[in-house]
Design a protein around this nucleic acid. Structure first.
Lengths: 130, 130
DNA sequence: TTAGGTGTATTAATTCGACTAGTACACTTG
DNA sequence: CAAGTGTACTAGTCGAATTAATACACCTAA
């Protein structure tokens, strides 16, 4: 169920989080289902159980899974909603926007604008002009 | 025009960015105006010119100022718009949302919801009785 | 009860990127 | 050309993030 990409540069525990999220979002794992045990994953991937535990803690904090003592991690109802995955980021953005004195409308406008703009990758325009 | 708060924990170059942004947002510095030279600020604050340069590079990347070779950094027209300050964050959020398969409408809905929710600090709803 | 399963608190080692500075350079202006 | 502008390169430092080792608390099922 899980696999690692060592050359990706993405931390192990985040890879696990991503794959679990995807498995849930795609319906391959449904609410009520159990995720593999910490030790099962740790053994399969050859990593420390704590690393897997950290991934699970992250998922739990996000409300994707719930810990059932003695049983394991179970996918929650709310966790199945992909939209919940962006709540943390959305909240951060809203906070910054409010801090800048933007109105709700202005923020939404900005979001829409960004949505339209395709891959113009305006993140790395370094390059000295001239 | 600039001052440092060593105990704030905020990196020097970010403090400069913040103060410059505020000076512009408040109208104390208008589009077309020149910002103090790298060396002037560096001397006044007792820091390395490169540190100030990094602040200016950040502002330039954000489109707040434009470099005029041989002259210095000049406040741009678009830079005066506070909304531009959130573009980077907005783009990041949009990218994640798209990756999760959300529609534009769903994302905006989520934003609106976050906007309403006041300081209920919903970041730690853990705890499961069971 | 207890053997075997679950996740995790604590601690420590390590890695890695952010931050700052020293120096030298390219460039424009007057 | 002299004096001003910002910056590329390089290097050092520091702290947070990541991973692991170990021991523990808890629950389930026989």
């Amino acid at each position: 169920m899980f696999s690692l990409n060592p050359s990706s540069g993405i931390p192990i525990y985040r890879q696990i989080v991503q794959q679990a999220r995807f498995a849930i979002a795609s319906g391959r794992v449904k609410p009520g289902d159990r995720l593999p045990s910490v030790r099962a994953i740790a053994t399969q991937l050859g990593v420390n159980p704590m690393t897997v535990s950290k991934a699970y803690s992250t998922l739990q904090q996000a409300g994707v899974v719930v810990r059932h003592p003695g049983i394991g991690m179970v996918v929650s109802e709310a966790g199945a909603d992909p939209a919940s995955a962006i709540d943390a980021d959305a909240q951060a953005l809203v906070q910054v926007a409010k801090q800048l004195g933007l109105s709700r409308k202005e923020l939404v406008e900005r979001i829409n604008k960004q949505w339209e703009e395709e891959w113009t990758d305006q993140t790395i325009p370094l390059r000295r002009s001239r």
